[in-house]
Amino acid sequence: MPAEVRALASDADHQLAAELAAHSAELLRALRACGIDDPDVLRKQGDRRSHELLAAELAARRPADAVLSEEGKDSAQRLGVRRVWIIDPLDGTREFGEPDRPDWAVHVALVIDGFPVAGAVALPALHEVWSTAGAASHDQPPAAAGPLTGPPRLAVSRTRPGPAAAQVQQALGAEPVPLGSAGFKALAVVRGAAEIYAHSGGQYEWDSAAPVAVALAYGLHASRLDGAPLTYNNPDPYLPDLLIAHPDWARPALDAVRLPPC
């Protein structure tokens, strides 16, 4: 990410991302505690109410910025502005509707000129918010600190691990760590619960913008599976693959996914 683009995000932008993610997390915790028996009703309410909260706050506090939300109607207007907030109001809707599962998240990211310069990922069930603001203020320990030994832990989908994860597991002898939402898997690397998250098979920009912003702020590697930079606010928000890794494991993981599958 160009340093001049990173510098365009203000301290207030970093703080706003963290604040909004925390507010949405509080709403979703309260909703989950309401005792709604039908999990589909709970999931739909979670998606809708979290989106409405985030969209209203951004409209009030950043009226000149555009918004791309998984739960909102897309508009070509966002392609003509430099600053776009990319949000996933409830990442891991399936897990949100399952009692006692913690692996769901809220994503809030600010993208400027295509780069995720500020962001926050809330893990509401754990009462944690990881953000670029926290990284800058050293409120949380750097995830990339310290040498690593032994085989890496690999965050994988609990329901449908993709071919990239299988290649990394086979090539590096990685230990799979099955988890739910994309944000929770990415944050497993930030939090030191895994060393690699390799995804293939399809995602959208809202699935990774905030996790990538946070991962980069904490000194981790984040790229496409071919090593290319991740860019956002494209006309088509489909972004099919992703690698987030501890720096010591980034090159081995990239080499592993370039091998032809058996």
Rank of each mutant, 00 (worst) to 15 (best):
M1A: 15
M1N: 07
A3R: 02
E4A: 09
V5W: 11
L8F: 03
A9D: 05
S10C: 00
A12Q: 12
H14S: 12
Q15G: 08
Q15T: 09
A17R: 01
A17G: 00
A17T: 08
A21D: 13
A22P: 06
E26W: 04
R32E: 09
C34I: 00
I36N: 01
D38P: 01
D40G: 04
L42C: 04
K44G: 05
Q45G: 12
G46C: 11
H51M: 00
H51R: 11
L53Q: 10
L54S: 00
A56Q: 15
E57K: 05
L58F: 11
A59G: 00
R62K: 09
A66Y: 15
A66L: 14
G72R: 00
G72E: 14
K73Q: 15
R78Q: 08
R78L: 08
R78K: 12
L79D: 10
L79P: 06
V84G: 14
I87S: 09
P89V: 03
G92C: 08
G92Y: 12
T93K: 07
E98I: 15
D100E: 10
R101T: 01
W104A: 01
A105C: 09
A105K: 02
H107V: 08
H107K: 10
V108A: 10
V111E: 12
P116N: 09
A120Q: 10
L123N: 03
P124D: 03
H127Q: 15
E128L: 13
V129Y: 00
S131F: 09
S131T: 08
A135V: 12
A135H: 07
A136I: 04
H138Q: 14
D139Y: 04
A143N: 09
G146A: 00
G150M: 00
P152L: 07
R153N: 03
L154M: 04
S157G: 15
R160Y: 11
P163F: 04
Q167L: 07
Q169H: 03
Q169D: 01
Q169Y: 02
Q170H: 15
G173N: 05
G173I: 11
G180A: 04
G180N: 02
L187D: 02
V190G: 05
G192I: 05
G192D: 10
A193Y: 14
A193M: 08
A194Y: 13
I196R: 07
H199N: 02
S200R: 10
G201F: 02
W206Y: 12
D207A: 06
V212E: 09
A215D: 07
L216H: 02
A217Q: 06
G219P: 12
L220I: 08
L220Q: 09
S223V: 01
D226P: 12
A228G: 13
A228K: 05
T231E: 03
N233R: 01
P237F: 14
Y238C: 01
Y238M: 07
L243N: 13
L243G: 06
I244H: 00
I244R: 12
I244T: 07
P247R: 10
D248F: 00
A253S: 14
D255Y: 07
P261F: 01
C262M: 01
